[in-house]
């Protein structure tokens, strides 16, 4: 048995995931570049820094920006600011990865389950999420630090937990949309069970939502770490962290404002980068926008 051929596969439709390959928008390019720069800084810091970032050097205290030996100057202990910024990028990434990882690993399955489980289970889960959402993330982190001792990891797990609801919500609404499609109906007709539908159809189709949410959550986590370190609940000394650099610069704000300016700028730019990346990814992958041909 053979049918009349259906004609050629259209060569103008290019292989790949989204329907149309558009040129990446400016926010995707700028955000992506900034994020790439932060990653490069962190990687670079493993193999090379101008100086030991934790080395206290009384002879070179409070050098100004533009110093031939210390390009971004030194702090009140004579530690090299550039080296601290480079190593601080590691902390920033670590912080983001932990927080987003915790939030994603808990939030995505919760969202999928809330969408696929019987209605009352889903509703109960989502009300619990609402409760958690009402609790300020920073307060939760401070409580965690008070109980388990202040460390970057503890603070970030707390931030991650506080971010779970945003993942669960987005994934649930995306999953509900996927579950109402004909291809899920077709999969059921084909004999797929619930878990098969969840793994094979729901997860891949909400993945773009998750990626977008992750980059936004990343930015929030970076900011939260800076805030916590500034308050003294985050990264303990001597590990360099942009937030703590900011805190330590406080007392010298008038005599050496550059000490606040450099880590402040680093935080601002990194957060902007992750937010832009999130916006750019959303423009590109949001199925609601994609359908508008």
């Amino acid at each position: 048995m053979s049918a009349q051929p259906a004609g050629p596969i259209d060569p103008t439709r290019v292989a790949g995931q989204p329907r149309v390959r558009r040129r990446p928008g400016p926010s995707l390019v700028v955000g992506g570049s900034i994020v790439a720069a932060v990653v490069l800084m962190a990687l670079l810091s493993f193999v090379w820094t101008p100086h030991d970032p934790t080395l206290v050097n009384a002879a070179a205290r409070l050098r100004d920006v533009g110093d031939p030996e210390h390009w971004l100057g030194t702090d009140k202990f004579g530690r090299d600011v550039l080296s601290q910024v480079l190593v601080g990028a590691r902390t920033t990434l670590f912080v983001g990865v932990v927080a987003v990882g915790v939030a994603g690993l808990l939030g995505v399955p919760l969202g999928v389950v809330a969408a696929m489980a019987p209605r009352w289970v889903g509703e109960t889960l989502m009300r619990a999420m609402d409760l958690l959402l009402a609790f300020p993330a920073l307060l939760l982190a401070i409580m965690f630090s008070a109980v388990y001792g202040g460390s970057t990891l503890v603070a970030m797990i707390a931030i991650g937990i506080a971010t779970v609801p945003s993942f669960a919500r987005i994934v649930r609404s995306g999953a509900l949309q996927v579950l109402s499609t004909e291809y899920v109906l077709a999969a059921r007709a084909a004999g797929r069970r619930s878990w098969g539908i969840g793994l094979r159809h729901v997860l891949p189709n909400v993945s773009s939502l998750v990626i977008v949410q992750a980059s936004v959550a990343f930015a929030i986590a970076v900011l939260a770490e800076a805030a916590l370190s500034f308050l003294g609940y985050g990264t303990p000394p001597p590990t360099p962290s942009w937030g703590r650099m900011l805190q330590e610069s406080q007392e010298l704000l008038f005599s050496a404002p550059r000490l606040a300016f450099v880590p402040g700028l680093a935080i601002a730019v990194a957060v902007l980068g992750f937010n832009l990346l999130g916006d750019g990814l959303r423009d590109r992958y949001d199925p609601r926008l994609e359908d508008r041909r």
Binding site: Q17, E182, L185, A186, A187, A190, P204, N205
Partner: peptide, 24 residues
């Protein structure tokens, strides 16, 4: 089904789509 776009999972290759009942 009716909708030739909506009844095929956009993230799956045709091979996996056709084999889905067999796998399931």
């Amino acid at each position: 089904f009716q909708d030739p776009m909506g009844s095929l999972d956009p993230r799956m290759r045709v091979r996996d789509i056709i084999a889905e009942p067999l796998v399931a």
